[in-house]
Amino acid sequence: MVYKQRLDGRKGDELRPMEAKTKVIPNAQGSASFKIGKTWAIAAVYGPREIYPKFLANPKRGILRCYYNMMPFSGSGERIRPGSNRRSQEIAMVMTKALEPVVDLSQYPNSVVDVFVELPQTDAGTRCAAISAAAMALADAGIPMKDLVSSVAVGMADDKIIADLTYKEEHIYEFNPESLNAVVSDIPLAMIHNTKELTLLQMDGEITKEDLLKALELGQKAIEKVYAVQVKALKENFIEESK
């Protein structure tokens, strides 16, 4: 009943290798690609633009609208039915709520900023990768933002608190012969960098209060690493060229 060595050999607080890039979709006002391990999210931002359907318009400020979509071939090989479903709608909603507190659209009444996130490949932590990519794309589009949002999942596999779970770790009871009856918890987090406010906190599974607090502490450190990658990618485009 112990999960000593992580399946991919990482340390408990170690994230999967990250790779981030902006300006990947030339058509969009802003865009970003964010890879963490095998999970890969591409975000494109359009707007502020005229909102349709009109009844959604808010005369006091512009609204933020997120779309989340896993590509049909993105999972383990089982074809994922394309199009919107209950899960993707929920994730789009939590993404919007995770990003809304930092995006300032008060100068753009009656308009909408659309954020489209596509996932060409997934291996758990998709909503976190999607939020991280979306925050970068919004900044790249020049949308006024109070701060950046970074996101990563933490959790508990068997008896070990770990950061950035993979699909296999979320299903540890199937993949680790010593953890057959293990309890798993997966806690996606998103945090505003300066204020350390959490804008996303969800959980699947079971966890004790003590462990949850430990996991959140670990999450805060893990999110700092994501933030560093985001900032580097946003600045890279301009620094490299100026040399």
């Binding site: 930092v102 900044a139 006024p144 933002m145 109070k146 701060d147 950046l148 505003i192 960098h193 300066n194 985001q230 900032v231 946003l234 600045k235 301009f238 620094i239």
Partner: peptide, 8 residues
């Protein structure tokens, strides 16, 4: 210098 949103 290039700054990102939220930078002090």
């Amino acid at each position: 210098k290039i700054v990102v949103p939220g930078e002090v």
